[in-house]
């Protein structure tokens, strides 16, 4: 079985801070990680490999330094790494990104494709289903459990107030939730292999290596553009009271609730 896992290298947004003077993002010193949902997807693939045997290929699109994420994936147990990296891919929105990735996947053998549900820097949850659409295969989003049954996959698909237990024939694409599992650590031997074993070296594919229409990718080919970005203006301050007693404090609150017809 061939499993392809799509991963993204993201800044650890929980570490992103705002410059209090300028209101802009401080990006320096923010560590890069494998996006958490993607890492859970990779772990799911590696568990299927452990159980049934499979070749696991990790694919990422990004700048050359995204190779660090692919090396980490190989050190966790992936068998092959492909980095889609080219200036022509830069500035792609989700439509264009999914088009580039899908065109690369067309060159690979796959029975199952796993992506994360969403990346923590963009939070769009779009690229997975869009890849499936470009490839013309079914997708099952928000997977909280995955089981293989012959040439079918059984997925526990999460909704707000229920789960659907869904059976789907391979090939298909699944988007993984980080609740799916706890990803394994890299092993020292695999870390060594990831950096030294030539057979495991990341293959870098540029725009000439994938069968893609260059008019529909990159900044110019993207249907959506960023019109402007800004930091949120804080809400105008209300009144802050320092009452002497709890009784007085409670009265201020209750008066306000009555004034606003909440009471």
């Amino acid at each position: 079985m061939n499993i392809v896992v799509c991963i993204k290298q993201v800044p650890d947004t929980t570490e992103v801070k705002l410059d209090p003077k300028t209101g802009t993002l401080i990006r320096e010193g923010v560590p890069s990680i494998i996006n958490p949902d993607d890492k859970a997807g990779l772990e799911a693939a590696l568990r299927l490999k452990d159980q049934y045997g499979a070749k696991v290929t990790v694919v990422s699109m990004g700048p050359p330094q995204a190779d660090a994420a692919l090396k980490e994936a190989v050190a966790m147990g992936a068998d092959q790494a492909i980095l889609l990296s080219d200036r022509a891919f830069g500035g792609s929105d989700t439509w264009a990104t999914s088009t580039v990735i899908a065109s690369a996947l067309k060159k690979l053998d796959y029975d199952l494709i796993i992506t994360g549900r969403q990346a923590i820097d963009g939070d769009t949850a779009q690229v997975g289903p869009q890849i499936a659409e470009h490839l013309g295969i079914p997708n099952i989003s928000y997977a909280e459990d995955i089981k293989l049954e012959g040439d079918h996959i059984i997925v526990k698909r999460k909704y707000e107030d229920r789960y659907h237990i869904i059976k789907c024939k391979l090939p298909c694409l699944i988007t993984a939730l980080s609740e799916l599992n706890v990803p394994r650590y890299m092993t020292p031997g695999r870390i060594f292999d990831a950096y030294r074993n030539e057979e495991l070296a990341t293959k870098v594919w540029g725009v000439n290596d994938v069968p893609v229409d260059t008019t529909v990718i990159g900044l110019k080919g993207s249907p959506t553009n960023v019109f402007k970005s800004f930091t949120k203006a804080p809400k105008a301050a209300g009144n802050v009271y320092k009452p002497d007693t709890a009784e007085e404090a409670a009265q201020i609150i209750v008066d306000k609730l009555q004034e606003k017809f909440i009471l």
Binding site: L25, D123, V226, F230, T231
Partner: peptide, 10 residues
């Protein structure tokens, strides 16, 4: 975007 740290108009 970026964990709510900035807003973007698309």
């Amino acid at each position: 975007a970026f964990g709510g740290n900035i807003m973007a108009t698309i």
